[in-house]
Design a protein around this nucleic acid. Structure first.
Lengths: 188, 188
DNA sequence: CGCCGAATTGTTAGTGGCTAACATTAGGGG
DNA sequence: CCCCTAATGTTAGCCACTAACAATTCGGCG
């Protein structure tokens, strides 16, 4: 049941949080401050966001990515399958970019605790990929290695994007990152 | 000044912590419980370990690794330099393995919060590598991508080692992990 | 062997993230 | 426009972690 009221409150909290984070830093901002700025109780904050970092860190793309990886030719080595899968998924994700995406990424890059939260989120994506690969008979460790390496490269690109000139697109950086993992430095 | 007393207390806390973590899980154990089991005040715990997770997560190898990466031929692409550097460093690190290493790794693998702490530690290693590579003129983003990917693969191997049969060595797994990042699936 | 002083530990009080249980309010569908 | 339910508030509390100051212990020195 998604009532309009819920959406309004959530948006108020989110706005207040982004403002405060940008003005006084993530670690320098308390949940109480966010709640007060949003005209709300701290308790209400946690009803809308399970943790403080959830305001900035979300990734709902796991199934999409796992599917894209699975769609690559089964004969390829797992690293290559994962790499091509991520590149394919990129096309479907980037358009969805909402306007605050860059602000959020830039903020995540500033705080170790936030990057830790993001890396926790990435684990879920990695696990989704690993499940998909092992389903095709790939060894579990090999799958974990491939997925971890590709996602780490992608994450590096993502963080760089946060502070890149505004004409640089995320897709460009991710392509560049994954190109480095291509076999024998292929230009693909 | 490393007095014997300090070492004893530290060892008592460490033993108590490992026992409790293994018996009731990391997240199911409070610092107070550890302190009590070690016959010490919670405050004293934090004087010996800056955080709860510091009992399990440490990596003093950053300079060694960065140096090993720098020692690889400058002409190679950054990914390959990093990869070979890590393999070289592996030889000097593994012997140091103390007996609790495997227990610790196995514990880290069990808790998301611990893996997050480890990933924060890995960032320091990554930064050390990036500094070393950029010093040789490598583009910063390229360096970050290479270091992130190689370290992620290594971490995957490390975590797998925690629950691997006892005749499997860490070095074996890491070599296998980094082999996947080798150009054109070379056997080296 | 005992004493002195520095290093280690304890005490107290507090902050911030986060949760549980229960009471209260408010908004929108009928 | 009223009522019912979803949303919010209230209170109390746990846990990781920190600061400032007081109390100890212990090891090296005479």
């Amino acid at each position: 049941m998604v009532t309009p009221r819920t959406l309004r409150t959530r948006a108020r909290i989110l706005d207040a949080a982004l403002d405060l984070f940008e003005n006084q830093g993530y670690d320098g901002t308390t949940v109480n401050q966010i709640a007060e700025a949003a005209g709300v109780t701290p308790m209400t904050f946690f009803r809308h966001f399970p943790t403080k970092d959830a305001v900035l860190v979300t990734d709902p793309y796991d199934p999409l990515i796992a599917e894209a990886v699975g769609a690559q030719p089964v004969g390829l080595p797992p690293l290559e399958r994962t790499r091509l899968g991520l590149l394919a998924a990129l096309g479907e994700i980037t358009p969805t970019e909402d306007s605050t995406a860059r602000r959020r990424v830039a903020l995540v890059a500033t705080s170790p605790s936030l990057r830790a939260a993001m890396s926790a989120g990435t684990e879920a994506t990695r696990d989704a990929i690993v499940e998909r690969l092992t389903a095709d008979g790939v060894d579990r460790l090999d799958a974990a290695i491939s997925a971890s390496a590709c996602l780490a490269a992608t994450t590096a690109a993502l963080l760089a994007w946060g502070s890149a000139p505004s004409d640089v697109t995320l897709a460009d950086l991710v392509r560049r990152a994954l190109a480095q993992l291509a076999p024998a430095g292929a230009t693909a």
